[in-house]
């Protein structure tokens, strides 16, 4: 079973968490074009390999954090805070 290191609660099983999808997506200005808005809402890199994503420890402390994870091996490379810069 995949395990994630919650920065507050330590190493826990994956079913305690909820994945919030790709992180570091910047919301465009409200006067953005339809193209830019559509890309912001729906279009993703969806990489095969390293992916930076947000997770929430929903059955634990309830906190959000960022994870860098391999989408093939499911290996977690790093865990960092929501406002930390991209590693």
């Amino acid at each position: 079973m995949m395990q994630l290191e919650c920065p507050w609660c330590g190493l826990r099983d994956e079913p305690e968490f909820v994945c919030g999808g790709t992180t570091h997506i910047v919301r465009p200005a409200l006067d953005a074009s339809d193209q830019a808005w559509g890309e912001y809402l729906f279009f993703r890199d969806n990489p095969k390999g390293l992916h930076r994503e947000r997770w929430r420890h929903s059955a634990g402390c309830g906190q959000w954090f960022n994870v860098e994870r391999d989408t093939v091996s499911h290996e977690v490379v790093s865990v960092y805070g929501m406002s930390d810069p991209q590693p």
């Binding site: 079973m1 995949m2 099983d13 994956e14 992916h51 994503e53 989408t71 093939v72 091996s73 499911h74």
Partner: peptide, 13 residues
């Protein structure tokens, strides 16, 4: 399995 994956195996949970 509600997280992005290219591994052709599913979680035990």
């Amino acid at each position: 399995d509600l997280f992005p994956s290219y591994a052709q195996r599913g979680s035990f949970s």
